[in-house]
Every structure is written in C-alpha cells, then in structure tokens.
Amino acid sequence: MIRLEQVRRAYAGREAVAGVDLTVERGAFCALIGESGSGKSTLLRMINRLVEPDSGRVLLDGEDVRSLAPEQLRRHIGYVIQSVGLFPHWTVARNIAAVPALLGWERPRIEARITELMALLRLDPRLAKASPASLSGGQAQRVGVARALAADPDLLLMDEPFGALDPVTRTALQTELARIQRETGKTIVFVTHDMDEALRLATQVVVLDQGRVVQDATPSGLLAHPADDRVRDLLGREDRGLRRLALRPVQSVMRKPGPASAPAIAAATDCRAALSRMAELGVSVLDVQDEHGTRLGSLHLADLIAG
C-alpha cells in the first residue's frame, strides 16, 4: 500500500528525516512513535505531500505520489491533526461535507454521508447545525475524524489526533477508532508519542529517533525484543512486563472453570487489568464470565505471570 524508499528531508541543515525505508500494508494500523523532533510528523506529512522529501520516493499502491496533483492526492487521503482545525465559520455538517463538496458530489449523496458519519462517530444528529466553537474537545475531534473519512478514503493519516484530549475522552476515542478500523478496514498511519496508545491500537509500531527507524515490529514483537535502549526507554523499563500483559486478553490464559467462589472478571478484560484486580482484592484466582454471567473459565496468577 505505502512504500517509503530512502526518504530524506532537512530543515536548516538538520536532517528531520534521515533516510527512511518503510512499508505499510493495506489494512494495517501503523503507529509512528518517537520523541519530539524524531521526524515522525515530517514522515507522515510526506505521504500526502504536505512535505516534499529532498530525496527518496513515496509510493502509494506502487505509484509515485509526485505523479499526482497534490490537491487530487489529498482529497483521497483522510487527514486528522491534534489541533483538529475545524473551519470555525462553517457548521459541523458543512465541515464534514468539505471533501465531498470539493469532489463535486450531489447534494443528496452528501447529506446521506453526513448522517452516516455522524452515526459512525456517535455524534448527536442535533449537532449537525452547531458551530464548531460550541463543541467540547472530544466532540470536535470526532467531527475532525468524520471530516477525514467523508469521501471514504482507503488511507487515513493522523497526527497525534488525541494528544490534546483528557485521558477519559482519549480512551473513548481510541476505542471508537479501533472499532471504526475493524469495521471499515482502512489503512491508518498514526503519529503518537504515547506508547500505551501505540501498543493498544497499532498492528505495526515504528520507533523513530533522530529521523531514523530504530525498530519496526508488531506490538508484541517490540515488547518481547526491543532493539536497543532507546526502545526500552520508550517502553518504560519498569512497565514492560505490565505492557506485555496488557496486549493479552484473559481468555488466552484461562483454565477450565474452577470453584464458583472466586471474584468475577469480564472476559473482554486484558491480563494487566486482571493482575491489577487480583492485587486489589488480594486473591490469586478470578472467575472469567461473559456479559451474561456465564462462567467461561478461571484465571490463575501463576498462568498470568508465566504466559
């Protein structure tokens, strides 16, 4: 889907991107992670030509992006930024309709798409006529994501989309994004400096440092075999074990149902939350149940740690 070949870009003599090769497969959820100044945003903005590389090539489905007019290219790539950038003089509905309007869609088709996207992003339909100034931060970014998805692009670029939100709203939007990606199968390239966010959402984590790729791996691969100390630092040395647990659902390590007296835990929980629950209750066995209260199995502390 996306191939970056030896791309470089310097600003005032300093290389922001210093020779990066990267492949992102169709349907992948790729997180670009690194400290400020690691070149992750510059790399992202090369994909839709907001930044032109000094050398190297960017290919989309085998086609060099430079062979396409920038406006045409961008209308077929969703784009979401941290500060959202809704057009303050337009209603929510008109903001969402921005790209379909550029593409010259018919009015009824645009109206139908607005309704569909507001439902997908769980936005109250009454907000359609609202002004962006009246929205909360979370609502505004939902509109931002809806606007990016409006023309149904195959690829979505997101530059720290949830970085400015409070933790509760951020978690809610991460969950929505994971659901939307599951439902639509979009390819997403996502810039973040939040390792928990990267591990939680991505299928491919690309760690950048000083404009170079340090490691390109799956979340579990990254946790199991961090390439060097910089990756270990980003993963948080003390938290690595817990982060690995967070990637695993409890169902993958549970045994047959045991004694009914153990405290219950939902089947959708991850192993880190389960461990926390054990520590909180002072027990070493939990009873795994689905949403109807059916007992699915039992979870043992020894299995959690051994897994």
């Binding site: 920038p70 950038g85 550029l102 931002g144």
Partner: peptide, 18 residues
Amino acid sequence: VPDAVKDAATGLGFGPWR
C-alpha cells in the same frame, strides 16, 4: 487565521486560491 485551520484545509485538498 489559525495555522491548524489552514493546515487542515490544505491537508484535505483545498488548493491555495480555494
């Protein structure tokens, strides 16, 4: 005019004059 608004407009495919 906020930079974010201009960046979003360009990123969504508005040409400079539009």
